[in-house]
Design a protein around this nucleic acid. Structure first.
Lengths: 386, 386
DNA sequence: CGTAATAATTTCCTTCGTCAAGTATTGATT
DNA sequence: AATCAATACTTGACGAAGGAAATTATTACG
């Protein structure tokens, strides 16, 4: 698994060391030992093959602090350029792809429109996209062996099967196998929100948190959860459906058949239809609504306010139930996050119980290609902790 | 840990074998090996010391099925009488205690009224209660070394510290240490809902489930969660607060400062005050309300209906977010569960998203002394999987 | 009574991680 | 400069844990 000639499996300690250095930056062997509950001897032994394989490097000794002195630590750090990873997010009308290094920094990005979301057409375009990415400037191909794919819907990461993806209209597509055949890479397939959550947990604001939640706001409103250090998957293929928590018994009908769901109040479509209703303009778009609200239209601003409050209430439900150490709110819907932010916060603070209000809330728009980076992060994870 | 002369720690495989036999009944070594992903040799080795210490026994060979024959399996089973465990639930006005065997079957139960919920008074009564339990018929004392305590509020199981218990008005009480001094037993302290959840996960309907939720309905409405096989604790001391999920933006005010919380609609106090309001009888009790509703009073029945729907909506939030394999709804509030059940189910089914409706829901009243049994179950767990 | 099938055990071996001792490198003290 | 204390890291012996494969145990069936 680890090197071309590797044995395939990594000892528990080696995985732990690799993961800790990857996610928590340069660390000396002694601090790793303390952090992981291992002896320093075990860390030395676990680190050696990783250094020899070129994944880790020893940094120059740091100057010592404190009075007593002692031998300076030589921190272990990731060699970002040891290996590259492709991540692709598949949507119904576009492929977004990135090449990341081992530190999950994006090196190249590209996207391709999709005329047809059929499986065959998507795979053909996927092959071309990856060729573009790997054979462009930078010569990434030689050091790239892994590909992560992010798809919305019900995905079995273990088998790489897309059970059902509503937007793509895919049923039981063996995506890992098919993508592997076309690209020649080792493929990992994951649900898009889970991929994003993994990226944030390993490389973003969730680093070091035993539990963590990521909320994505857009047409749909989703949630990825990490509890006890592990991603939550849900027994019936359902988890993180914060968008369909009911927060208003007298609220608007939702496409799911219920009413008062967060998504029926705060999803992009819901915002648009409410803005159309209160302005009387049937052709109004989400951009129009944002512009009106920013321009001071109080009726449209109230629509955003109600949406933000509903999101905040839903987030409080997450905080009250699982008590994450921190929560990140993101998503394309947050392009208008200036209109949402205070209302999300007040909704959250009103509904969070007791000490749960202390849970730090990051609210920020989602940078371009972040979804694809999530897919690459899952691919990195498949190398480090298979 | 395991025997009087034991080495203290149990190998991972031994813990896994012990746990599996305890929770999933008699199992042959081969089936244990398959289930746990171990070699049968490892199971043989792990089981031997447990048998020698008297915790496990080999049952008589079962008759073989199938055509080919083969040596019959000799299933490993728990020796329930090897050791006994005391469990006590501490409430503001009563101590409820049980002695359980290793299979978590209740052997004796007793309770004692408390005049004063102060720490010293409670500990004195606790000592007497335990003496009553252990020195009564059955001679449990000789084989009892462990005590579990269940307390509502913010409890640190690791240190046995009760950080804050609102009903008891305790702050930072080192309960484990103090109870150990008085009783001479090894003490485990756990939050009451978590203890109940643990009991249900190991010895009840949650057996075998990777994820599982227990909802308790009463004055408060709480929720214990098991995700990825582990109890959820919450980073800020908050988890499972299903009672303070907001399900009705225009609902009644809650004592927590928000409005429309599940507890403000369906908690016992909320039911009583709504029933008083709609009947115009200021002295009405919960028993009166139940009697009226059962007797056909539609206004009071509607109060229960609204409460049940709110609970169902809250449960759906749990199902949508973490996707437990099954959910048990219980609690003293469900003495009137005939009035709640259908409304809980319809509320759940309306709000559960997609396949989450398939999550089995058990709705049942909470047997007497079940809280104390939960405490005993935690104590058993502290022996088997420290 | 042999033979196939399944269960459990035994023996030998590998792997992993700890322990304890030793080496390396620094600042402070003499 | 020499020594010492402090801290970081490495080494090698050891033990515990679990696996592979051969062996033994026990059954049904011909």
């Amino acid at each position: 698994m680890l090197s071309e000639t590797g044995t395939g499996a990594l000892a528990p300690a080696a995985t732990a060391v690799f993961t800790a250095v990857l996610t928590e930056g340069p660390l000396s062997r002694v601090s790793l030992a303390n952090r992981l509950g291992l002896s320093s001897a075990a860390v030395t032994k676990a680190a050696r093959p990783l250094i020899e394989a070129g994944y880790l490097q020893e940094l120059a000794a740091t100057e010592r602090t404190g009075p007593g002195a002692g031998r300076p630590a030589s921190p272990l750090a990731i060699c970002p350029d040891r290996e590259y990873f492709v991540g692709v997010k598949i949507t119904a009308d576009e492929l977004i792809g990135v090449v990341c290094d081992l530190s999950a920094d994006v090196r190249v990005a590209a996207h391709r429109p999709l005329a047809d979301p059929g499986v065959d057409a998507v795979l053909t375009e996927l092959g071309r996209l990856i060729d573009d990415l790997l054979d462009g400037p930078g010569d990434y191909r030689a050091r790239t062996r892994r590909l992560g794919l992010a798809v919305s819907g019900d995905v079995d990461r273990g088998t790489g099967l897309v059970r059902y993806s509503p937007f793509l209209r895919w049923h039981d597509v063996p995506l890992r196998e098919r993508a592997a055949r076309i690209t020649g890479l080792a493929v990992t397939v994951e649900n898009d929100v889970k991929a994003l959550t993994t990226a944030e947990h390993w490389f973003g604001e969730g680093v070091g948190a035993e539990s963590f939640a990521l909320i994505t706001v857009g047409t749909g409103i989703g949630c990825g959860l990490v509890v006890n250090g592990r991603l939550v998957s849900g027994s019936h293929g359902v988890a993180g459906e914060i968008g369909h928590i009911g927060v208003d018994a007298t609220g608007p009908d939702c496409h799911c058949g219920s009413r008062g769901c967060v998504e029926a109040i705060a999803g992009t479509d819901a915002i648009v239809s409410q803005a159309r209703a209160c302005t009387g303009k049937p052709g109004l778009t989400i951009d129009d609504a944002v512009a009106l609200a920013r321009g001071g239209d109080e009726r449209v601003a109230a629509v955003f306010a109600r949406g933000g409050t509903a999101i905040g209430t839903g987030i409080a439900a997450v905080a009250n139930l699982v008590g994450p150490a921190r929560i990140v709110v993101s998503g394309e819907g947050l392009a208008a996050y200036d209109l949402f932010e205070t209302h999300i916060r007040t909704g959250f603070e009103r509904q969070a119980f007791g000490a749960a209000v202390q849970c730090p809330l990051s609210i920020r728009p989602l940078p371009f290609e972040e979804w694809a980076r999530g897919a690459a992060a899952v691919s990195i994870q498949s190398l480090v902790a298979p």
